Simulated scan of single mutants.
Amino acid sequence: MTIDFALPPALSAHEPPEARGLARDAVRLMVTDSGGRIGHHRFRDLPELLAPGDLVVVNNSATLPAAVELDRLAVHFSTAREDGTWLVELRRHTSGGTEPYPGGAAGEWLPLPGRATLRLIARETPRLWRASLDRPVHSYLHERGKPIRYSYVEAEWPLADYQTVFATVPGSAEMPSAGRPFTAELVTALVSRGVRVAPITLHTGVASPEKDEPPYAERFEVPEPTATLVNRTREDGGRVVAVGTTVVRALESAVDPQGRLRPAEGWTSHLVTPETGVRAVHALLTGLHEPRSSHLRMLTAFTGEEVLCRSYDEALCEGYLWHEFGDTHLLFGNKW
């Protein structure tokens, strides 16, 4: 199944909502309920859409300034590997931004700003290289890097605009953007209503908009307190709401054969699809995803293809905004 549609350029969010005169939590929120009905809200309405006893699970990964600019190329640092190497994407500068660069060769050395050197080791995927930098990557990126930006974002914005209120563990190449509309005040309102909030960590890699690829292995952790809260919420009849596809991936990677969540950490290659289903999560709060994106398969595991297509038709007709600075979508699973 591939969900395809034409995304008009005008529906790409070109800057943070704050630059459009909106607070973070004033972006729009489309809700698709378990019966397939569609409603329209503002994100700050979220506490009213949830119930006491529900659990909101968030990703506490912080965004790195993962793009390093060269004269003709940009290097996007994606994912740290266990052996100290990194997956990186090489991109070529164009008049409107960057595009994937097909060049490079195993063993090639690339001089980077600040007299650093990146060595290409081998291709990990058709798009990504395994590479090593001759100095600690995190400190180098904070010295020389900037947030990854694609052509639909028309100007550079500071790293703070690419962080969520939950960001405490640095490691993501791109922002876990489903959590961006949360504010401290909104979290307080959720807790005051009796909705609990718990973290996981999943460090997101690069997701170039030109490529329709399934996500590759990413580092994650589901801590014991979060696993306990998920199990208790389900046992007590509450709903587990995942904030972002990264949270779904982490939680579904930690479900044991009996359907209980266990503490887990490491690397996950798990793909959530209609065939695998969802076992730990009742609802997903996410952004609006690209046509043909592999993330759309995850969404159909919650709603089914027909309901998801209707939801996206509605979002297009109502002028919702796509991408990391855009609007949001709350989907309740059709079997709950």
Rank of each mutant, 00 (worst) to 15 (best):
F302M: 08
E252T: 11
R239N: 07
S95W: 01
A301S: 14
G104C: 02
P263L: 03
A217K: 09
E306L: 10
G145N: 04
I148S: 03
L7N: 11
Y312S: 08
P274L: 08
G326W: 04
G36L: 05
R127A: 13
V27G: 14
A10S: 15
E314A: 14
E275F: 04
V31P: 01
T125H: 00
V278Y: 09
T85K: 05
S78W: 04
L285T: 07
S208N: 14
A160G: 05
A13C: 06
P52I: 00
G96S: 14
P47A: 06
V187D: 05
S61P: 14
A106C: 05
L118D: 13
G84M: 09
L22G: 08
W157E: 13
G304Y: 06
R239Q: 12
V137C: 09
E124P: 02
V153F: 02
P263I: 02
S151T: 05
D33N: 15
R81C: 05
R92T: 00
A189N: 07
A51E: 14
L331G: 03
L90Y: 02
Y312P: 06
T273R: 13
E318I: 00
H138R: 14
E174W: 00
S253E: 10
F332D: 05
T276M: 03
P126W: 02
H203I: 03
V195N: 08
A105V: 06
V248D: 11
R37Y: 00
H76P: 00
A66C: 05
T98Y: 02
T79E: 12
T276F: 00
A6L: 05
R193H: 09
P8V: 09
V31A: 10
T204A: 15
R279C: 01
D33A: 12
L110H: 11
F77W: 14
L330A: 09
L49F: 03
L261W: 02
P65C: 08
F166Y: 03
R260C: 01
D71V: 02
L73K: 07
V281F: 11
L120D: 10
H14C: 03
